[in-house]
Simulated scan of single mutants.
Amino acid sequence: MIKLATPRLAAACLALAAWLPLQSHAGILNDDEARKAILELRAKVDGIARDLNGRIDTKADKTVSLEMVNQHEQTMAEIAKLRGQLEVLSNEIVTAQKRQKDFYTDLDARIRKLEPRQVSIDGQEAAVAPDEQSTYEAAMATFKGGDYKTAATQLGAFVQRYPQSSYASNAQYWLGNAYYAQRDCKKAIVAQQVVATTYPDSAKAPDAMLNIGTCYAEMKDKKAATKALKDLIAKYPDSAAAQAAHDRLPGLK
C-alpha cells in the first residue's frame, strides 16, 4: 500500500496541537486524567491517520488502475497500428509477387518469341528465328503483290542480314526472279548463279540454273544458254528442271 508523508505529517501536527493544550492544563488535571486524555487523543489521531491512509490507498489503487487502463488502451492502439502496417506490408508483398510473376510471364513470352521454331522449307524441316521468318514472309508478300522493285530490295537485305538462314537460298532465288520480272536479265543471272554456287544443295538450285539458261536465251546468247542447260542436266539429272532443260535444248540449235 502507498503511504504518503504529507498526511502523516498532518496527523502528527494534529497530535501535537492536541498535546500542547494538555500540557498547559497539566496543572489542572491530575495524572490519571491526563493519561486517559492522551490515550483517547492518540486513539483519535490513529483513527484519523488510518482513515487518511485508507483514502490515499484507495485513490492510489484507482490511479494505478487508471494507469493500467490507459496503458492497455495504448497497447491496443499500438497493436491496431501494427496490424494495419502488417496488412499494408502483406498487400505490398502480394503486389510484388504478382508483378514478379507478370514479369517472368512476359519475359518467358519474349524469350519464346526469340526462340527458333521448326518450319518446313521445300519439304525439309528447319529451325528459324521468328524475326527472320517474319522478315522473309514480308518480302515474299511484297513479291507476290507485284511490287518487284521493293521485293528485290527486301530480299537482298534479307540475304545480307541472314546469310546462314534456312531461308537464304530461297530468298536469293526469288531475288533473281524479282530482277527477271523487271526484265533485268543480267542481275537475274548474277543472283541465280549465287544460288547455284553458294547453295548447291538447295531445292532451288536446279531451278536457278534453269532460269540462268532462260535468261541467256532471251538475251540471244545461245551458246551461254546451251552451256547453262547442259550443266544443269549434268549436275541435277533427276530433277524436274533437268527435264525442262532437255526439252529446251533443241530450240537453241
Rank of each mutant, 00 (worst) to 15 (best):
A225M: 01
Q154I: 11
A178M: 02
R42H: 09
K235N: 11
D201C: 06
S90P: 03
K227Q: 15
D231T: 07
P7M: 04
A129E: 13
L41Q: 12
M68G: 13
A178D: 03
T142G: 08
L114S: 10
A191E: 02
P116K: 04
Q85S: 10
Y216Q: 14
N211E: 11
S24L: 12
Y236V: 12
C215W: 02
L107M: 07
A96S: 13
P7W: 03
H246I: 14
H25V: 10
L22A: 11
Q193L: 09
R50E: 12
P116F: 12
A224Y: 10
Y167K: 06
M1N: 05
D238E: 05
A217S: 12
K222T: 10
R50C: 03
Q133L: 03
W19C: 06
A188Q: 07
R99Q: 15
L4D: 04
K227I: 13
A234S: 15
L175V: 02
P237E: 04
S134Y: 01
A34V: 10
A168S: 00
Q74M: 09
R117K: 14
Q133P: 01
S165M: 01
G47F: 03
G146I: 13
Y162T: 08
K186W: 04
D122I: 05
E115I: 08
Y162R: 00
L89Q: 08
A188M: 01
K220W: 06
A49K: 13
G54F: 11
D147V: 09
A12C: 00
M140D: 02
S202L: 04
L29P: 01
P250W: 15
A168K: 11
Q100E: 13
V159N: 09
G213Q: 07
A10T: 12
E67D: 12
Q243F: 05
D57Q: 13
Q172I: 01
T63M: 10
A77E: 12
A168G: 06
A10M: 12
D238A: 13
K223N: 14
M209D: 00
A181V: 01
